[in-house]
Simulated scan of single mutants.
Amino acid sequence: MISSSRPRMTGIGRVLVIVYAIMALASTGRSFVQIVREFDAAPVAYTLSALAAVVYILATLALIFSRSQGWYVVAWIAIVFELAGVLIVGTLSWIVPAMFGHPSVWSYYGGIGPDGYIGYLFVPLILPFLGLWWLWTHRARVPAAAAEVAAS
């Protein structure tokens, strides 16, 4: 049986949720403005920014409600997807910068691009590692009856 007597939303957990919420707001605002103003200029980059916004919103909610087993699983899926997205988009933005047209939230790993573009100070690269660590160290509780069924 996995259990923890520690409160989940204190200390680093609370800070993590706040940073995810800030990234959700920032990427939502950025993608909205990009899509409304100049979607035709870089549809891939702006669609990726919108996708990042959805992932950050979902991860924020999942972390808040991760005491339940279902939300805990959703948090893992969202954050692993986020990590894959930032690694893939970040790598491709360095290797094939013309593919995107303009930077997205995950371009250059959320850091500084070759043209002096300043992203999110590498927060998109660091955040999923912190999120996965936090999920790993704060596993969702499994009810005793479910643990007994799983053990048999």
Rank of each mutant, 00 (worst) to 15 (best):
residue 33 V to S: 06
residue 54 V to T: 05
residue 100 F to C: 11
residue 98 A to P: 02
residue 89 V to G: 06
residue 65 F to N: 10
residue 29 G to P: 05
residue 82 E to R: 08
residue 65 F to C: 05
residue 50 A to C: 09
residue 22 I to W: 01
residue 71 W to G: 07
residue 59 A to V: 03
residue 77 I to E: 01
residue 61 L to P: 03
residue 51 L to I: 15
residue 32 F to N: 07
residue 82 E to S: 13
residue 80 V to L: 04
residue 97 P to C: 12
residue 42 A to W: 06
residue 94 W to H: 13
residue 93 S to P: 06
residue 57 I to P: 03
residue 54 V to C: 04
residue 99 M to T: 12
residue 55 V to M: 05
residue 20 Y to E: 03
residue 76 W to D: 03
residue 40 D to K: 08
residue 66 S to E: 04
residue 34 Q to A: 14
residue 60 T to M: 00
residue 51 L to F: 15
residue 26 A to Y: 05
residue 76 W to M: 05
residue 44 V to E: 03
residue 15 V to D: 04
residue 84 A to I: 15
residue 23 M to S: 07
residue 39 F to W: 07
residue 61 L to F: 02
residue 80 V to W: 02
residue 14 R to T: 01
residue 23 M to N: 04
residue 80 V to K: 00
residue 23 M to Q: 07
residue 28 T to Q: 08
residue 98 A to E: 15
residue 53 A to N: 06
residue 86 V to M: 02
residue 35 I to S: 07
residue 75 A to N: 02
residue 87 L to G: 11
residue 60 T to P: 02
residue 90 G to Q: 03
residue 23 M to A: 06
residue 39 F to I: 10
residue 103 P to A: 15
residue 65 F to K: 04
residue 67 R to F: 08
residue 31 S to Y: 05
residue 43 P to V: 00
residue 33 V to M: 08
residue 15 V to K: 04
residue 74 V to C: 03
residue 49 S to P: 07
residue 80 V to M: 01
residue 41 A to T: 14
residue 33 V to E: 04
residue 83 L to Y: 07
residue 76 W to F: 04
residue 38 E to F: 07
residue 38 E to Q: 13
residue 53 A to M: 08
residue 86 V to S: 02
residue 43 P to I: 00
residue 81 F to L: 15
residue 54 V to W: 08
residue 33 V to F: 09
residue 65 F to D: 13
residue 56 Y to T: 02
residue 31 S to A: 14
residue 34 Q to V: 12
residue 81 F to E: 09
residue 29 G to D: 06
residue 67 R to P: 00
residue 21 A to E: 01
residue 45 A to K: 05
residue 100 F to S: 11
residue 27 S to K: 07
residue 47 T to H: 06
residue 78 A to H: 05
residue 23 M to F: 03
residue 98 A to W: 00
